[in-house]
């Protein structure tokens, strides 16, 4: 799933080296009015979204706002922005407003098939922790990666849904570290077994080979006393995500979220 990004990233790097000025000029996929992203991330995501646009032939972009201006809600803002803008019929756009701390995934046309209600929920749940922690770079990177995965899946198979849920890719830094740690443990224990084969001289501390006629002449097990300790149970976290609704299919599925 995420693998296909490696050639993608390579391509971008090549492009970047070939036409640095052209790339800087084409930052049209990101309108970061609230200035939430660092410029390098802005560049990277812009390139990634452009590439996706070519691949899937849909509009993808990210808009950040300081406030909503005249629009009453972020949904209204998005609706007007998308329909009045020069965008394709199909697309997925992310709107973030710092003033109201709203985040909204707007889907247009076929975009809502790839990112359906399930997809919106999934993406919200993944990025909101970053946004509310003001880790905007990570949040937007995460959004773009997930969007790419959802689009890829929709294009090549069927869209992710409740009955066909998104699987986190197993290749991630934590799992690689676990693999490396396990490899270190296993290889160390193997070589130490090999090393122990070289040693065969050990003192005897027992003489059980020479013992016989063992008899137990007295045995008593008497209860003396008890000690009881208790530890408080960790409280279960009650702030679960909202459960996904049905298939939207319209121009925009679920509503916005706060972060």
């Amino acid at each position: 799933m995420r693998l296909k990004k490696i050639p993608c990233v390579l391509l971008i790097l090549l492009l970047f080296m070939a036409f640095p000025s052209a790339l800087a000029a084409a930052e049209s996929k990101i309108s970061d009015t609230a200035e939430l992203m660092t410029s390098s991330v802005r560049k990277d995501l812009n390139a990634q979204l452009s590439e996706m646009e070519n691949t899937y032939n849909q509009s993808f972009f990210i808009v950040t706002l300081a406030d909503l201006g005249e629009a009453g809600t972020i949904e209204q803002y998005a609706e007007a922005h998308y329909t009045n803008g020069n965008y394709l019929m199909n697309g997925v756009a992310l709107y973030v407003c710092m003033g109201t701390r709203d985040v909204y995934i707007y889907t247009a046309g076929m975009g809502s098939y790839a990112v359906n209600a399930y997809g919106e929920d999934y993406i919200y749940d993944s990025i909101i922790p970053f946004l509310s922690g003001n880790e905007f770079d990570k949040g937007f990177e995460n959004y773009t990666d997930l969007l790419d995965d959802f689009m890829y899946q929709y294009k090549n198979d069927i869209a992710y849904s409740e009955s066909y849920p998104y699987k986190e890719p197993l290749v991630n830094p934590v799992n690689i570290l676990i693999v490396l740690g396990a490899a270190a443990l296993i290889s160390l224990s193997i070589v130490f077994v090999m090393k122990s084969q070289l040693k065969s001289v050990r003192p005897q501390t027992m003489a059980l080979n020479y013992a016989k006629d063992f008899q137990l002449t007295r045995q008593s097990d008497v209860f003396l006393y008890s000690r009881t300790t208790r530890t408080a149970k960790p409280k279960a976290n009650s702030s679960g995500g909202r459960s996904g609704g049905g298939f939207g299919g319209g121009s925009s599925g679920g509503g916005a979220r706060k972060f």
């Binding site: 003489a207 020479y210 013992a211 016989k212 006629d213 063992f214 008899q215 137990l216 002449t217 007295r218 045995q219 008593s220 097990d221 008497v222 209860f223 003396l224 006393y225 008890s226 000690r227 009881t228 300790t229 208790r230 530890t231 408080a232 149970k233």
Partner: peptide, 22 residues
């Protein structure tokens, strides 16, 4: 509902026996 409990029971265990060693 709120706590995990651990009770440790302590016992005095007496054993006597013999064996021959050759």
């Amino acid at each position: 509902r709120n706590y995990n409990y651990t009770r440790t029971d302590y016992y005095s265990i007496i054993r006597e026996g013999n064996a021959s060693f050759t």
